[in-house]
Computed example of a mutant assay.
Amino acid sequence: MEAVGIRGICYDSGSSYLKGPAGAPALIREALRSGMMNLYSENLTDLNPWETWDLGDFEIKDYFDIEALTREHLTRKRKLFTLGGDHSITYPIVKAYAENYGKLDILQIDAHPDLYQDYEKDPYSHACPFARIMEDGLAQRLVQVGIRTLNPHQEAQAKRFNVEMYTMPAGLPELPLQFSNPVYVSLDIDALDPGYAPGVSHREAGGLTPREVLTLLQRIEGEVVGADLVEYNPVRDQDGMTSEVGAKLMKELLGLLI
């Protein structure tokens, strides 16, 4: 069994504002294979055979099909890298992961906490996945970095679930980030300042630079067993800029997994 599988989850029915992230996976892959960049991560991991690891893209109609699909893929690959899709996909993915790995820690890099108990009467909105994950006891530890859209409800939820939250006003965590359990990394591309990644549905100024995100990823201490890259919205992109940033982030996430 090969160690890593790459797949696209083409789903944006959890989006609360603009649709479009369902079309993201193919465009990030296109940027990666364009010849614009080499296929080595910054730690010199060779990613040249990445297309042989690719399981393809999956059009999702029923939300919880994502969980069943992930469970099936984990029988074929020990680790998975998922191109989304909106952020709602992380909950069913982590449900399947928790069955495989037992104790999990999660690093979420994001502008938004995604801790709403429900959003617009939808408990499976992309604004809610980490509330579902934590109330189901699927993660021992949730570390959030890049947050800059906190409100009183989500602050109360963070306290309820004992979330380790690093807001942008408070600053970044001390590195290295150390984890004692297997780590799942969920990277919402809107964590970046929209000047670097305009192709997102919810642009939120005052965000992270690409280098800050890359340094954060490179300074993880612990075994990374899965990752997703979500919320790229091609409808909002400018000259393919965000797909190219996404391809760079994809390389570094794969470098962590391999």
Rank of each mutant, 00 (worst) to 15 (best):
V94I: 15
Y91E: 11
T75V: 00
R141P: 05
D62K: 15
P113H: 03
H87G: 13
L80V: 07
P169A: 04
E59M: 10
D193V: 00
F130G: 09
Q154C: 14
H126C: 07
S88P: 14
L69V: 04
I189S: 09
A158I: 01
F58I: 08
D57H: 02
G146N: 03
L115C: 02
S125C: 02
K79V: 01
K77L: 04
E174W: 02
Y97V: 05
A68M: 15
G56S: 10
N162V: 04
S88K: 10
V185I: 15
V94W: 03
I147E: 12
T149V: 07
L192Y: 11
A96S: 14
K95W: 08
K159M: 11
M134Q: 15
H73E: 14
L55I: 03
E135D: 12
F81T: 06
D122S: 06
P152H: 04
L172D: 08
A96Q: 11
M134C: 13
N151Q: 08
D57T: 00
K121Y: 12
M165K: 08
A96E: 14
Y184G: 14
I60F: 01
K61V: 08
P176A: 07
P198K: 04
K79W: 02
K159G: 12
R160M: 11
N100A: 14
R148P: 01
S180T: 12
D114H: 07
Q144H: 08
L142Y: 12
P198M: 00
Y63L: 14
C128Q: 02
P182K: 10
A158Q: 10
L55Q: 13
K159W: 00
D122W: 00
P198A: 05
P152E: 10
L55T: 04
E135T: 04
Y124H: 15
E135G: 03
D190Q: 00
E59C: 06
V183F: 01
T90I: 09
A98H: 15
Y119W: 14
L150V: 11
G146D: 05
Y91M: 03
G85T: 01
Y166N: 11
L172P: 02
A131P: 01
I89Q: 13
K95N: 10
D110C: 06
L74K: 12
A127R: 01
D54E: 12
V183M: 10
D188C: 08
Q144W: 01
S180R: 10
I93A: 05
A197M: 11
C128E: 10
D54W: 03
A191C: 14
H112E: 08
A191M: 08
M134W: 02
I93K: 06
G171M: 02
D188A: 02
A96G: 13
L74H: 09
R141T: 07
H87R: 12
A98K: 12
Q140S: 15
Q140K: 14
E164Q: 13
E99K: 12
I106S: 01
Y97H: 10
G84Q: 08
R148C: 05
D57V: 07
T149E: 14
D136G: 02
I133N: 11
M134P: 07
L69S: 04
